[in-house]
């Protein structure tokens, strides 16, 4: 028993890792679609809806309508929307990074919401 215990433990951990890898990497559902998200920013304080979601590799278009002049910043992708009161500002990008990305009102660093790319 003594001789085999290390190989046994290593084998169990390796099997665990392999199954985990299959579970995690195989479940990556390919996005690759076009997604359009419309958001409204009110008073440089809140955004509706406040949670946006997309899949990995989607082509995402975000249309921001704000009642205030200023700048909305999407972290992670580092995309800026220069808003003019009442006008729609659009940005299109490919969702190459997965994660939970904050969206904030740049000048006051007010948290508006977030974009979840899964």
């Amino acid at each position: 028993m003594n001789r085999y215990r290390m190989p046994i433990v290593v084998a169990v951990v390796v099997i665990f890792a392999a199954v985990g890898a299959v579970l995690i990497f195989a479940s990556q559902n390919g996005g690759g679609q076009n997604v359009t998200l419309d958001v409204t920013v009110t008073g440089a304080k809140s955004m509706s809806p406040d949670t946006l979601s997309a899949h990995h590799n989607d082509t995402v278009t975000i249309n921001v309508t704000s009642d205030t002049d200023g700048e909305v910043h999407l972290h992670g992708y580092d995309i800026h929307f220069e808003t003019k009161a009442g006008q729609v500002v659009s940005q299109t990008f490919k969702a190459v990074n997965t994660g939970d990305f904050e969206i904030e009102w740049e000048s006051t660093s007010t948290h508006l919401g977030h974009l979840v790319v899964s």
């Binding site: 215990r5 433990v9 199954v19 985990g20 579970l23 994660g99 939970d100 904050e102 979840v116």
Partner: peptide
């Protein structure tokens, strides 16, 4: 801020089960 997404429930259960099974193997082999 953190960018990482929380692990899914399925993954959590898989990892938790793995921890229990591996612990059991460790006890038996040692």
């Amino acid at each position: 801020q953190r960018y990482d997404l929380p692990a899914s429930l399925a993954l959590y259960l898989f990892a938790a089960a793995g921890v229990v099974v591996i612990s059991f193997v460790l006890v038996v082999t040692f």
